[in-house]
């Protein structure tokens, strides 16, 4: 099927793509959020955003990878909302944020990683997920988070430190 057909044809194309795309979109989201209900909500938001984009004839490349990027945008929106709610609960940022990470030879277990990510502040979770789970370059992460590259790098330093602290803390209970 030609995904670059005239945008007037893209409604049926989106429907035809749905069965194949749904597990990719849901799989992407389910691996990055706490619970199934949230993954479903974000999946629905993703496809409805795709419908709007198709109706507005803004989709150059109607494909599964494109839908995953829409899902990522919805995920970032969700983290932003969550971060706003959390803002009142945060302690002041550490003024020593410029400290370089230790060279800790840690290997992170996947399941434990997910648990720890879920406990972090949304802005730290967003930065680490985009940079490391999704493998995006820092410049792309900065764009998603609407920050400068410099501010994003600083955020990543703090996020990695928060992640390690929480990860190791859990470990010491063994």
């Amino acid at each position: 099927m030609n995904a670059n057909a005239s945008t007037a044809d893209q409604g049926p194309l989106l429907l035809a793509l749905y069965d194949r795309a749904l597990p990719h979109v849901y799989g992407y989201l389910a691996a990055r959020v706490r619970d199934r209900t949230l993954a479903e909500d974000l999946t629905a938001e993703t496809f409805l955003a795709a419908v709007r984009a198709v109706k507005e004839q803004k989709v150059a490349d109607l494909s599964v990878p494109w839908l995953v990027t829409v899902a990522r945008n919805k995920l970032v929106d969700h983290w932003r909302r969550t971060a706003r709610e959390e803002r009142t609960l945060h302690l002041a940022e550490d003024p020593d944020a410029g400290i370089v990470d230790d060279d800790v030879d840690a290997r992170f277990e996947r399941q434990r990683t997910r648990e720890v990510l879920a406990t972090l502040g949304a802005h730290h979770r967003a930065a680490l997920t985009l940079r490391y789970l999704d493998g995006l370059p820092v410049a792309d992460v900065a764009q998603h988070l609407d920050r400068s590259v410099h501010a994003t790098e600083a955020l990543l330093v703090r996020a990695r430190r928060a992640f390690r602290a929480s990860y190791d803390e859990g470990r010491s209970d063994d």
Partner: peptide, 23 residues
């Protein structure tokens, strides 16, 4: 070590009722 967190998209089917309703 954080690079080990890299997770490509792994397809996962959601609940059939959800899939149908969304479609």
């Amino acid at each position: 070590p954080f690079d080990a967190l890299r997770e490509p998209v792994v397809p996962l089917a959601p609940r059939p009722e959800f899939a149908r309703a969304l479609r």
